[in-house]
Nucleic acid binder design. Structure first.
Length: 710
RNA sequence: GGGCGGUUAGCUCAGUUGGUAGAGCGACUCAUUGACGUUGAGUAGGUCACAGGUUCGACUCCUGUAUCGCCCACCA
């Protein structure tokens, strides 16, 4: 072998030799690991690197143990995130959804996707990942489309899909509905306004005072609600209050959901813009009015404030109330305001037409089987169970263009408003239907405008990647997955969904072991992010210290569920340490192989006490590394093999052999070769390089048998 | 407001079933052409956040407090 072979050369050698490929036809028992598809954006970050390092070490370990190992890679189209990045890019050319057709826009989006994908892949593959690239999946490809339509169709047939007026969190900046899970809360100091509403039809003017933080929505009020038996206001039940802006009559109602001790115990009901109000309104059969539009501006419902944004409208509304003498008082009020996780914009609760899945039956089934999944750390079973127990329906439609378009086609003639109901004329299919509308005979089908939530496809990732709904050879052999890994923050969005969907569609848990790694944070405990500029890019570390060293550094943070704090300096320190370890290993090889003394070949059978001792220690190391790998404690496994090689083998044993160099040769070779095999899952490149220089059998250390205690 | 996690050497972190604490980096001392100075041999440094409790014995189990962080939540 060429001495100057680089990491990239070894990688090519492995890949060309087909060592990464799984073979469903082999007699070996399967071990399958599913790579979480990273989002199609920018450079892979440190979290990806850690995930991939963990996945790869386990894949290499299982392969050496003799399993037919599948590590399946893929990339997620990442709906909102990708569309956001792409939109900014288009804006530089003065292009947008307003001056491009959907087809033109998508064509450009795919071109951009191809560029990003290529760059992404380049960074990705230098990490030494022994993934089966022949099975790689991108979440918008045809295979996934087929699965997604099947998923949708099944829910439809089971009567679990519905569409209708529903309150959603609308982000005016992203221009789409976002889920509760995609919202953040920010503590903001605002004012709480106490406003007097005149009671209609009384001889002397009497008022009911309500407290609100959002006076700009008054025009959309449809009632005033008080808590039951309100000492001051109960007498007004059945009467009407006058809306100060629109002069319409507002019924005064009682509802136990109104908090007794907040504000005045009286609440203005604005079902179009508040979830609690929406629910109260629904139960009291109240109308739903909108005074804030999807652009975040006041609608025509309020003549006076029309066209203003929220902040301006609020100021003006307060001014007007003041003029009318209806503003009782305003007090400082600090509360958490929902903001969009991506745009950091305050979200507007709005009524919108969205598709939903009824989740209760899926949740019930998941709860019965979730115990079959082994979680690391263990407490995640409870965390997920608690969430699934409080499940709410899943809003699956997004007003985006980048994603799986909802496979619903409406008959233009007999169902022009795209409504949904069993008697309505619509059909489900991937492509434009060729059938005639059963109602009017028309063939003018129009597809639903929206796309599906990214997690609607990602949730099926464990099945779709193996060819579902087809009963493929791969599916039969590799499902359920043996191992899945995830960042903790997507445990609900993704992990809980996969468990529910997999049990629903296949009656099986999606994976046997579920590993949650911790979050790598900046020194102040905050997340690393591009915008804060506190990120560390794995690519930079690899360029400076090499892949093996970077991987070892990451394993030291791979204790299940434990966060780590670091900056570039700390990362460099640790990487440097492992780079030095690599140098140590090269010198050990030099000592054993290149400086092999005369007569060493005739030293079989001259084993001494030192040789026996180091072999005993090697055996202990084999046992510990193996068990730490099996319990997914990679931080302990790496520490163990590191300590053995450096401080037991090199510092002690090798020093002692110097007096009896020749007769120690067989032990030196055997112990070092075996230790390299134990280290291979973690430092794949250098172990291959050095293993090749020792007497060995077989083409690659990748194919070596996992060391056993002898 | 609820839930979860952290708090161990100057720094970043380990610590299987309870038996007076470990690593890497950093500091200090020594070794200088020995496989390797990207090295070796040593040394210093911790009342394991705090207060109770269980126990012969607690970093480890229980209760509470403080503090930092994360997640979740429809009090207008």
């Amino acid at each position: 072998m060429d001495k100057t072979k680089t990491e990239a050369d070894w990688y090519k050698f492995w890949e060309k030799s087909g060592f990464f490929k799984a073979d469903p036809k082999s007699d070996k028992k399967p071990y399958s690991l599913l790579m979480p598809p990273p989002n199609l954006t920018g450079d892979p970050h440190l979290g990806h690197a850690m995930q991939h390092a963990i996945l790869d070490s386990l894949a290499r370990f299982k392969r050496m143990q003799g399993y037919d190992t599948l590590l399946l890679p893929g990339v997620d189209h990442a709906g909102i995130q990708f569309e956001g990045t792409f939109t900014k890019l288009l804006a530089k050319e003065n292009l947008s959804k307003y001056n491009l057709s959907r087809e033109e826009w998508l064509k450009k989006a795919w071109q951009f996707r191809d560029d990003v994908y290529k760059a992404f892949h380049q960074t990705w593959s230098i990490f030494g990942i022994s993934a089966d690239w022949s099975r790689e999946v991108f979440t918008l490809e045809e295979k996934v489309q087929t699965g997604v339509v099947e998923e949708f169709q099944t829910f439809w047939d089971q009567d679990l899909l519905y569409k209708g007026a529903y309150i959603v969190q609308w982000c005016p900046k992203c221009g789409t509905a976002i889920e509760d899970l995609e919202m953040e809360y920010e503590e903001r100091k605002e004012k709480l306004y106490y406003i007097n509403y005149l009671i209609d039809g009384l001889p002397n003017p009497e008022y009911i005072t309500i407290a609100t933080a959002r006076p700009e929505t008054i025009a959309a009020d449809v009632a005033i609600a008080i808590y039951p038996k309100h000492p001051k206001y109960a007498k007004f039940i059945g009467k009407k209050a006058i809306n100060p802006f629109t002069q319409t009559e507002l019924p005064i109602i009682e509802d136990k959901r109104v908090e007794k001790d907040f504000g005045t115990g009286a609440l203005k009901i604005t079902p179009g813009h508040d979830l609690l109000d929406y629910e109260i309104g629904k139960d009291h059969n109240l109308a739903i009015l909108h005074v804030v539009g999807k652009d975040g501006k006041i609608t025509e419902l309020d003549d006076h404030l029309k066209g203003l944004n929220i902040i301006e409208a609020r100021e003006k509304a307060v001014g007007k109330l003041h003029e009318l003498g209806l503003l009782d008082k305003a007090e400082d009020y600090s509360h958490s305001v929902p903001i969009c996780e991506r745009s950091k914009n305050a979200v507007e609760p709005l009524i919108s037409e969205e598709w939903f899945i009824k989740m209760q039956p899926l949740a019930d089934k998941a709860l019965k089987h979730i115990k079959e999944v082994g979680f690391a750390p263990k407490n995640y079973q409870k965390i997920l169970t608690d969430w699934i127990e409080k499940i709410h329906d899943w809003s699956i439609s997004r007003s985006l263009w980048w994603g799986h378009r909802i496979p619903v086609w409406y008959c233009q003639k007999s169902n022009p408003h795209h409504s949904v109901g069993k008697n309505q004329d619509l059909t489900i299919s991937l492509n434009k239907p060729t059938i005639k509308c059963p109602n009017c005979g028309s063939t003018e089908w129009v597809q639903d405008d929206q796309v599906l939530d990214t997690w609607f496809s990602s949730g099926m990732w464990p099945m779709i990647t193996l060819g579902w709904p087809k009963e493929t050879e791969d599916f039969k052999k590799y499902f359920p997955w043996d191992f899945e890994i995830s960042a903790p923050e997507i445990r609900y969005l993704w992990i809980a969904r996969m468990i529910m969907l997999s049990l629903w569609f296949k009656d099986q848990i999606p994976f046997k072991d579920m590993f949650f790694h911790g979050t790598l944070r900046a020194m102040d405990g905050k997340k690393m992010s591009k915008s804060l500029g506190n990120g560390i890019f794995p690519k930079d570390l690899i360029d400076q210290w090499g892949t093996d060293s970077t991987r070892m550094f990451l394993y030291s943070y791979a204790a299940p569920g434990r966060d780590g704090r670091l900056n570039r300096q700390i990362a460099d320190e640790r990487c440097k340490n492992f780079r030095n370890f690599g140098t140590k290993l090269r010198n050990i090889e030099r000592f054993i192989v290149e400086l092999k003394p005369e007569g060493a070949d005739e030293s079989e059978g001259k084993e001494g006490l030192d040789d026996k001792n180091i072999k005993d220690e090697l055996n202990q190391t084999i046992t510990k590394v193996t068990s730490h790998l099996e319990s997914f404690n990679l931080h302990l496994a790496t520490e163990e093999i590191y300590d053995f090689l450096w401080h037991k083998f090199a510092d002690v044993y090798i020093e002692k052999t110097k007096d009896r160099r020749a007769e120690a040769q067989p032990t030196l070779e055997y112990v070092f070769k075996t230790a390299l095999e134990l280290l291979h899952p973690f430092m794949p490149f250098i172990t291959e390089e050095l293993w090749q220089k020792l007497p060995h059998q077989g083409q690659s250390i990748m194919l070596a048998e996992w060391p056993k205690v002898e």
